[in-house]
Design a protein around this nucleic acid. Structure first.
Length: 226
DNA sequence: GCGACAG
DNA sequence: ATCTTGTCGC
């Protein structure tokens, strides 16, 4: 992985198709004791990004550590190519972790992507790490609105292929979109996110990661690990 | 050609 | 993604 900053969109598309071949989203038995949440924060019009990964005990969901990294991005935000902008910094934060989580939840989509390689799938293939994508908005595919109660869910379809789940993480509030990154199946990812429920719409891993990187950007927390 | 479009 | 107070509804 490299030169992301200098890739053209056609070249990036080619790399996505290549990485997609290495995806493994078979269902499997997962024993999660440590779960991670990853997110990015930035100032509008700035090329500086603040990346972070927070570690939580599972299923208790208590913060036990984190990794924060500041970096520069050249790649612009283009729907469908978010990974080329954020993955490099996230990988830096990832490598800085002394202990790796059993699964990492990333803010964005997994396979619920035009070429089945959203940021969570991209990160998962590049690192060989089990990952899940959890987004606040749909990028591609169709779904029927799930029931209004917590836990209700419906499949996200791309033609006849299921690429994720629309999941009601909080009653009467907009659903979140969950899809496999790498090394987890459609049901595996939904089951894990169902156990990450706190009192907010956004599942704890991603919500706490978002809170962490924002404090980092404002200078309230220093770069590094803990 | 038209509309949609993660963060 | 980020800038922001109050306010409506359960």
């Amino acid at each position: 992985m490299k030169h992301y900053e200098t890739l053209s969109i056609p070249e990036a598309t080619c790399l996505q198709r290549q990485l997609r071949e290495r995806l493994d989203i078979e269902e499997r038995e997962l024993s999660v004791r440590l779960i991670g949440g990853a997110d990015i924060s930035l100032n509008l019009y700035s090329s500086t990004i603040y990346a972070g990964i927070i570690l939580l005990s599972f299923p208790q969901l208590q913060p036990v550590g984190w990794s924060l990294v500041q970096a520069e991005t050249r790649f612009p935000y283009v729907p469908g190519y978010l990974a080329f902008r954020e993955v490099p910094a996230l990988v830096d934060a990832w490598r800085q972790l002394a202990v790796k989580p059993d699964v990492l939840v990333i803010d964005g989509h997994g396979i619920a992507h035009p070429r089945r390689l959203g940021i969570a799938a991209h990160f998962g293939v590049e690192t060989g790490q089990p990952s899940i994508g959890c987004a606040k908005k749909l990028l591609t595919g169709q779904y029927h609105e799930p029931g209004l109660l917590v836990g209700d869910h419906t499949p996200i379809m791309a033609g006849t292929e299921q690429i994720g789940h629309a999941f009601r993480s909080k009653s009467k509030v907009a659903p979140v979109f969950v899809s496999p990154g790498n090394l987890v199946g459609l049901n595996n990812s939904l089951e894990i996110i169902q156990q990450c429920k706190g009192r907010y719409r956004i599942p704890e891993p991603t919500r706490l990661a978002h809170e962490l990187v924002n404090r980092f950007r404002r200078g309230e927390v220093a770069a590094g690990t803990q």
